[in-house]
Structures are given as C-alpha cells and as structure tokens.
Design a protein around this nucleic acid. Sequence first.
DNA 1: TAAAAAATACATTTTATCAGGTATTGCTAC
DNA 2: GTAGCAATACCTGATAAAATGTATTTTTTA
Lengths: 209, 209
Amino acid sequence: MRYKTVIVDDHPIVISGIAGLLSELENIEIVEKFESGIALLDYIEDHKIDLILMDIFLPIINGVDLCKTIKQKHPKIVIIGMSSQSERSLVMQFIQNGGNGYILKNASFDEFKNCIYKAIDGEIVFSEEVKTIISQPLSEDLERIPGLSRRERDIALLLSQGKSTQEIADDLFLSFLTVQTHRRNILQKYKMKNVAELIAFLLKNNMLN
Amino acid sequence: MRYKTVIVDDHPIVISGIAGLLSELENIEIVEKFESGIALLDYIEDHKIDLILMDIFLPIINGVDLCKTIKQKHPKIVIIGMSSQSERSLVMQFIQNGGNGYILKNASFDEFKNCIYKAIDGEIVFSEEVKTIISQPLSEDLERIPGLSRRERDIALLLSQGKSTQEIADDLFLSFLTVQTHRRNILQKYKMKNVAELIAFLLKNNMLN
DNA sequence: TAAAAAATACATTTTATCAGGTATTGCTAC
DNA sequence: GTAGCAATACCTGATAAAATGTATTTTTTA
C-alpha cells in the first residue's frame, strides 16, 4: 500500500525539498502540494489522504487550527507538523489538537524519514531538537516566569517607547503614583535592576506585543 | 561559463529544495552545501566561488555578518540573502554590508530564477514581497540608520543588562564621565528619549550581539 | 598625511527613577 | 462569600539619569 500524502507549506522551496526527500520513500506517494490550509480543506473533501506534512506558520489559518479542523472530520489521517523554530507550548498545542508528530525543519533527512515511518505506524513522533525542548523545562519555563497583568503590559509597552512615568500616567489617565507602583511591581516580579534591563528581558522573551 | 554556487542554510530540506530549483538552471553549478557560516568561511579560502545563496538566520554567525566578512575579502562573489520573514531594517543592513539581493523564501520558483539571473548580471535584486516592504517609507530610511561604534556597542550591551553608568565605568575601566558621554552620544544618534527606548530599538533592529 | 570619526575626560543643573512602606477598592476564582 | 490578586493611590529620601557645554587624544580611513 502506498500512503497518499500531501504537503502544506507557504514556501515553494520547502515543498520542493520535502517532495524530493519523500520521493526516496517507497511507500509514500505525494498526491498534492498546497501553499495554504484553505486549499487543503477544499481538496480533502473529495480525495482520500493518508498523511499530511504541514508547516505550522501558514497564512490565513495556522497549522494548529488546521490540524484540529481536519482531525475532527478525518481522525485517521496522520498529521505531522513542522516549523523552523519550536516553542514548547506550540508543540504541546499541536499534539493536543490531534497532531501525530512534530519535526523541526533543521532536522536531518534521516530524522525526517524515521519520524514519518514511525508516525505511519501509529507513534507520536518528534525530531531530536523538539524532544529536548519539550522534555526539560516544566519547572523552569512555566513556573519561574510569571506573566504580566494587563495593566502591567500596557505600562511596559509604553516604557519601551521611551515614555516617562508622568507621560504614561497621562496616556492611561492614571495617577503618577499608580504608574510608579506598577513599574516597581514589574521590576520586582522579574528581579530587574531598572527599566532598561526589564525591556531587554521582556523583548527577548516575547512578552511585549 | 558555469557559475560555481554554494548554498548555506541550516535546514537540510531548504538546501535540497534550492538545489532542486538550481539544477534546472543551465549555467549554475552547485559545488557545495553548508549548514553553517563557519564551514563556508573555511571552504572559501581554498576554492573559487561565484555565487552564494545564504539564509540570514544561521547558528553561530548570522547572515549579515557572514556577508560582510566574505565581501571584505572576496568582493566579486555575488551574495543573495534569504529568510522566511523579512524586516525592512534587516534587508537594508544586508545590502549595506555588500549583499547583492534578498529573496523571501515564500517566493515562487520563477522569482527565484529571475533574481538569481539578474544578480549575476550585477543588479541588486529583491523578490516581490521584499520590494513592497522596503519601498514604503523612502524618505525616512534613505537617511539610513548609522551603526554603533565598538565602544558604544559595549556600553549599550551593559546598559541592556541593567548596569548603571558607574558600574559600566568600572567594568570597562573607564571614567564615569566617559561612559556618560558615550551614553549621551548613543541616545542622540538615534534620537531616543532614554535608555529603555534605546534598548527596545536596538533589540528590534538586531543591533546588540 | 590630512581630515574625519571615535574614544576619552570634565563640570553642573534639572529631572526622573528606585526603593522603602502603606492602604483602599474592585474583580474573580475557588 | 471570601481569600487573593489586580488596580488604584499616597509619601519620601537617596540615587541615577538626562540635558548642555567643552575639550583632548587616539584611531581610521579617504
């Protein structure tokens, strides 16, 4: 039996690369390639598919939602997610929405092949780097870094725009003293010495915007 | 004549995709593929190369710095940058460091081909989406962003770590007053109100590290 | 090698931040 | 329905940063 496979990625080059790789696999048959999830959803209604390789960052509808939608109607289709960088929470979400595996695009050809074969056999698969990312930081990542509250985020954002305490108070129709308190709370929460260090920290952890 | 070409990308799949594309072009010959810039820098000393296609986001050394380093020694090599997302400032930086073009990875095969041919002919080329991104605020960006000097970068980096002027002075064995002057110069250069805004600006434009 | 850029240094005034403690009100989740 | 968090607000002293002006030396580079 040959597994009817589709590839979804908004980068033509990546599609071509994966197609080249898959063509080496005996029992895989690429039946279609898409640059967006919408096109795939159309196609899937009228055609039999066994395996989907999809990018997570797609225009219009993202990979996580796409996976969820497909799995609801077609739970037997094996879906493997891919992306360039991986965040722990993203991978978890994808799997919770029915994904059968997750591969980083910097994985080697052998990793790709192994993961695809194992996924077809019913395993949940991850490429090496994904494994290390999802296996470690339960204590460090989720517990250690508390989030900003709504107001704190507003204020942090304005701080990153160079606004002074007074200017922020005026912008948000708050007392100067309130803003001062929020600012102090943020600094204490992350044990930062001053606003400069705070902004660097927040930006590096994607906690602004 | 066949142009000796190398591909640099940390995603094996992308390398494979580009290689597939380039194999259709008569006068392009792929002589080597690398997953990091370090390996390329070694190779380039002993081998003739005419064209480099490189990812911008690479481990260890990034594409912008890699391009600069190569161009200093080998100005005749045509270098085209690639990335998945494009920020205006990043593209500009790349070109200012000697890059001959910039292509988004979601470009079509035809776009890739055209850009490569034109770049070989001496043009500075951009894929369609890059063009739209860089063409907008013409007047603002042509008075381009000046860079940080070495010392300024040192100081900006320490500022982003929350150090005070006095601490920086101690760290770098400088007078408090010297650091104060540098800090002021940096703020004035980018017309920033304070260090917080400066750090946000520098990080967003990848000017630290 | 001359000009430009970068790095160094000093002095002062005004303004803002940081750090300490305290307290009230409104949600909201258990 | 209450405990806990979030948001609001006040006070003050010490410290640091920002704004302004000037000037010498070293290094790059055209």
